[in-house]
């Protein structure tokens, strides 16, 4: 029975590793300027964790194969070196891993969160509410109108709670259900939650950030490839959570300008 355990375990370990090694399930191609660092960090970690995983399972399998239900009647013995070598081994092995991944790996995090957006980054406001995203562009005046939550009127497309009757700055604000951005230009996304917690996750952009009600958060990123990508909510926000999504539309600069003009004319 011990041998069966060993065989089953080896099969499980190999079968578990197979889809990883053959890259059967990988994230969609990265279209951001920072994403490659995250991807590298992920594959480095995968290599180290994968080796640890296989090693541990194989050692377990081998030991159970050899030492289960022994019929030889041989004397029991201890692993040479005993506990000390285990403790030292764990400290050295894992310690190096922590140093390698933990310390050097923080660069990827730092690049996303510790570098401020460029001053010429395009500012767009994202609002998350049950269960849709809306995006606001400041319009010709370059200023966002103020938000008055009591003015929100979704049936009339006033998703942000603008007050164009009294607030001139809000009159030219463009509101869109799609996040339309120009390619290769840094975007500074200001995040606003209308009701409960939500999250902004674009797989291709390697960006995930929560919307927290009452907290002004922002992310910045640059998309490098024209295309249409999905924005999904990843923070449980209620019954429509599964269907809370929007599209990120990355356009050439010309097309983006055309789109802005067209949107402005609809106001």
């Amino acid at each position: 029975m011990g041998k069966l355990f060993a065989i089953v375990l080896v099969i499980i370990a190999l079968a578990s590793a197979y889809p990883i090694v053959t890259h059967m399930y990988v994230m969609p191609e990265d279209v951001s300027t920072h994403g490659h660092q995250i991807d590298e960090q992920l594959s480095d970690t995968m290599a180290e964790a994968g080796i640890s995983f296989l090693l541990a399972q194989f050692v377990l399998a081998i030991f159970v194969w050899k030492f289960a239900e022994r019929k030889d009647g041989g004397k029991l013995k201890n692993f040479p070196g005993g506990a000390k070598i285990m403790v030292a081994g764990a400290f050295i092995l894992v310690g190096t891993e922590i140093l390698a991944l933990g310390v050097f790996g923080q660069r990827a995090w730092a690049n996303v969160y510790f570098t401020p957006p460029r001053p010429d980054a395009l500012q767009i406001q994202a609002q998350a509410g049950q269960f849709a995203f809306y995006f606001r562009y400041p319009g010709a005046d370059g200023k966002f109108g103020a938000i008055y939550p009591d003015k929100i009127d979704e049936g009339n497309q006033n998703y942000f709670g603008l007050d164009p009757a009294n607030d001139i700055e809000s009159r030219d604000d463009i509101v869109s259900a799609e996040l339309v951005i120009p390619v290769n230009r840094e975007i500074h996304l200001l995040m606003h939650a209308k009701d409960v917690g939500h999250s902004f996750y674009v797989r291709e952009l390697r960006i995930q950030q929560d919307f927290v009600p009452g907290l002004d958060l922002s992310v910045h990123f640059t998309a490098t490839k024209i295309g249409r990508y999905e924005i999904v909510c990843t923070q449980l926000c209620g019954l429509g959570h599964y269907n809370m999504k929007a599209y990120l539309n990355v356009m050439a600069q010309d097309d983006f300008e055309k789109w802005v003009k067209q949107k402005a004319s609809e106001l």
Binding site: G129, A132, E154, G155, Q157, G238
Partner: peptide, 10 residues
């Protein structure tokens, strides 16, 4: 009447 899933539905 509103649809919570589709905010424009009123």
């Amino acid at each position: 009447v509103k649809c919570n899933v589709h905010p424009w539905m009123h």
